[in-house]
Design a protein around this nucleic acid. Sequence first.
DNA 1: AAGATTCTCAACCGCGGCACA
DNA 2: GTGTGCCGCGGTTGAGAATCT
Length: 274
Amino acid sequence: MVRAPCCEKMGLKKGPWSGEEDQILVNYIHLHGHGNWRALPKLAGLLRCGKSCRLRWTNYLRPDIKRGNFSLQEEHTILELHNLLGNRWSTIAAKLPGRTDNEIKNVWHTHLKKRAAANHDDSNNNNNHQQQQPTTKKRRSASKKSKTASVNDDVSSLTTGDNGGAQSNDAKPDDFSSTEEMDESFWSEVLSADSSTSTDHDFPAAELGSGLYDDPLASFVSSEGDGPGSGEEAAAAAAAAGLAHSIVDYTSMDFWYNLLTGDNNKELSELPPI
DNA sequence: AAGATTCTCAACCGCGGCACA
DNA sequence: GTGTGCCGCGGTTGAGAATCT
C-alpha cells in the first residue's frame, strides 16, 4: 500500500497474512483470549501490530464468521438497515450473525449501492426497466479464490471444524444470479417501503419461490441484543431519525421485526434521509 | 492467446470515543 | 480539566482473479 505505514518503524510486518501467522494468532487467542490487542502480537510472537491482529481476527479468523455469498435475506436486511442507519456498518453487522462490518461494507460498495441507486432511479422513472441491470459482466460463477485460500482452509478447520474455505464461495452463484434475475419490483418494493405491499412475513423475495432461506427474519431476530450497541444503538439511531414520535420499545424484537417486515415501513418512508 | 478492463475483498490508515491516571 | 493509551469504526487502497475484447 502507498500510505505511510503505522508499524513500519517498529519493524513490524504488514500485508497479507501467512498461514503460519494465522495459526499463531488463532492458537494464542484460543489459549489466552485477546485481552490487550496492543500487547498480543508481542506475547504471541507475531511481528504485527495489535491493530492488524485485531482486524485479522475479527474479519477473518473468528470461528463464528460465516463465509460465502450473502443470501437474499441478508442483502435485504443490509439494504433496509442501511436505509435506516446509513453507513453504520458495525451496527448493521450486529444484525447479521457471522458477517463482519468489513464484509458488509464491501458488499454494499460492490453490489448493493448500485442496486439501491438503480432502484432509486427506477422509482423516479418507472419506464426504464429495460435499462436497468446493465450488469454486462456475469457474476463470477466459480469461486474467487481468496489470496490466502489455502490459509483459510487450514484455519477454518482449525477454528470451526466445518468445511472451511472450500465451502465459502461454492454456494455463491445461484444466490446472486437469482438476485439479478429477479423482478425489479422486488427492490422497488423493498426500498419504497410501501406498507401496502407487505404484511407480516410477506417478505418480498419469498414471492420468488426461491427457497433460498427459511424464516426470512430468523437470523435477524435471533441476533437481537447481541454484541455491543446492537439493539440500543440502532434504536437510538432510529429515534434520532425521528421515529420516536410515539412510545415504542426500540429494544424489542417486535419493533425491529415490524420495522423491517413492513408494518412500520410507511412511517419509515416519511423519514428524512439520514 | 494475449492484453485490457472490471470486479472482489483483505488489509491498511486516520480519526473519534472511551477509560484511566 | 487534561493528557495518554487503547479500541473500534468507517473510508480507502491495491493485488490478484475473472471476464471481456
